[in-house]
Design a protein around this nucleic acid. Structure first.
Lengths: 353, 353
DNA sequence: ATGAAAGCGCTAACAG
DNA sequence: CTGTTAGCGCTTTCAT
């Protein structure tokens, strides 16, 4: 099995096919017609040599890298992993490659990753979480984004970034809250608490306001009593917040909430632990629901009711927006994605009186 | 704020600095000395224009892309996400960018992703899971790997791939099994079952054999009775396997196992569900342990004891191997990584008589 | 230490 | 329909 290590390029293919490099390029890109006969000859040689045209060279020559950069807060978080996969699939389908970079929620990292993506001449950048989640945009980040990206590279975010010309594709957090509250109320829950999250995160802030609005409209009991149980987005933080809530109400001799809306599934997992540790039953004593419908919902005991999103659609929208703008076409500045539904599991499967 | 949209390259920098493009390149790469004065001038202009040299052009010119391709079975699986993050960090530290691609366990996808990575002229490819997990290598995949990668692009895998010149960095599955069995035995468990996984997966096969060897050595009761509870690697499959095991033993009037070793955390989560549904207590009636120490361990109720790995070290080893080979240096063909320890949680925190 | 020039592999006018 | 030619932006000899 002789294996000539001669580097094979379109020139080699062209020479052996008896055509010009340009013709080989034409059959590669499909951007122009080539006589069937020659085309077949070229294709045959490409197969024979397992020739794969260099995306690097192509990127240099046509000044489009066909790379979409994705900056994510942390891919180990199932929520982001789901979104990333949806984006990767959508991008591949459009002929783009994706370059993923984690920022671990640090602005300095986000900036560095942005820089690397600029070096790769990404055609567009999608940012999932991190600085773009903030209610109040970090000015130092904005500065870097404008400096690095300018009007050259479009940025699509899942949150917001004031004073930049980014595009936004967001989940309709208010609608998601509506679904949850409606579900709980239809099950007879009147005392509902909101647990977890931070108010400096935009999506949390939106959920919070929607919660206040709804509970007031529906005249639920003392709803404002149940809305200062913030903390964070992790399991441990869910446990801590819920512990505090239970103790606070117990000390005050007030009735515990009948239902708890958790800011996400991780927090809910922690909340569930706390509730069980206090000897209370889910969903009978306290009903629990949350957001994101990640795989934690199936692991939790009991199974966790959670708002589900259509990640595939979300990813597709993100990518389509990115590509449109990169191609100089227009795109909507802000798109709101409605949750796809509520996955009802045992944690909320209980009708109160 | 005037923003000339003139594309800025090393030529622009060179012109304005009054030096040649080569000199700018030299300060960029640091591959040669440049008089301090000129160097500073160049650096100043780079900062002034936020100039980021094109990695694409660089990749073309020096024929090293500084890209490491990573093919992963499914990034939504926390286990892989942990490994990926470790690899990304290690690669970044070495000045490489990473290109992640999911294969979803389909060989056809793996081949396609391999092809894309070849087009990007990745300097090396790391494959996490998928076809390289198989005990019996898929010949059609081997053929493609050899065709596409040949001796040009080094491949580093977490499993094996016969008849290719890949490098292997694996977790020492046997050692991990030792830790688990030893822990269980020291807690007085004698009837131990192995649940989940498939024997055509190499790591599972290794665990299985080690399990048989150990239980025989330790003269545990009828150990072979407890070793045919395979199925898969998911939650649902864990539940099904455990349900079957319990029914089988109940029907036969035989005592249930005192401890269950699950093939991974997801399976364990399903096993736990099954055990609870049967009204049995964990760890008192049945002790449960598993592998990987992912975040599911904290979510599960009770907390799940699991073998932990040092992902950071794993990723570093994977990346170092990849880069070494890519640079034409030698590297060990096979490296075994020892688990870093056992995270003992409540699911196994019980001494039997 | 530094400039000139060639070349990396491909695409895209521009002719014909 | 197809060949020729000029880049794309950088690195790297090779001289000087």
């Amino acid at each position: 099995m002789q294996q000539t290590d001669k580097k094979i390029t379109i020139y080699e293919i062209a020479k052996e096919a008896g055509v010009s490099p340009a013709t080989v390029s034409r059959v590669l890109t499909g951007n122009a017609n080539v006589k069937k006969e020659k085309k077949e000859k070229v294709l045959e040689l490409i197969k024979k040599y397992n020739f794969k045209p260099s995306a690097v060279a192509r990127g240099l020559s046509d000044t489009k890298s066909r790379i979409i950069g994705i900056i994510v807060a942390d891919i180990r978080n199932t929520y982001y992993a789901d979104m990333y996969v949806a984006c990767e699939n959508a991008a591949n389908k459009e002929g783009y490659s994706v370059m993923l970079m984690n920022s671990f929620g640090q602005t300095s990292m986000e900036i560095r990753q942005l820089g690397k993506l600029v070096q790769w001449r990404a055609d567009a950048i999608i940012q999932l979480g991190g600085a773009v989640d903030s209610l109040t945009t970090d000015p130092s980040y904005v500065k870097e984004v404008n400096r690095l990206l300018g009007n050259k590279i479009p940025l699509v975010v899942t949150g917001k970034l004031d004073n930049t010309n980014c595009y936004q594709v967001q989940i309709d957090a208010a609608a998601a809250m509506d679904m949850l509250v409606q579900h709980l109320v239809s099950n007879g829950n009147k005392r509902i608490a909101l647990v977890g999250g931070r108010l400096d995160v935009e999506s949390t802030y939106i959920k919070y306001n929607e919660f206040l609005k709804l509970t007031k409209e529906l005249e639920l009991e003392n709803s404002s009593l149940y809305t200062d149980n913030f903390g964070g987005y992790g399991i441990e933080e869910g446990t801590v917040s819920m512990n505090e809530l239970i103790e606070r109400f117990s000390l005050a001799g007030k009735p515990l909430p009948e239902a708890v809306i958790c800011i996400n599934d991780s927090t809910a997992a922690g909340v569930i632990k706390s509730i069980r540790k206090h000897g209370l039953k889910i969903p009978e004593d306290i009903t629990v629901v949350s957001y994101d419908n990640t795989d934690l919902c199936e692991v939790a005991e009991p199974g966790l009711t959670s708002v589900a999103y259509d990640y595939e659609k979300y990813g597709k929208t993100l990518v389509r927006t990115a590509i449109s703008v990169a191609d100089g076409k227009s795109a909507e500045r802000q798109i709101l994605i409605k949750p796809s539904g509520l996955m009802v599991r045992k944690s909320s499967n209980y009708k109160r009186n």
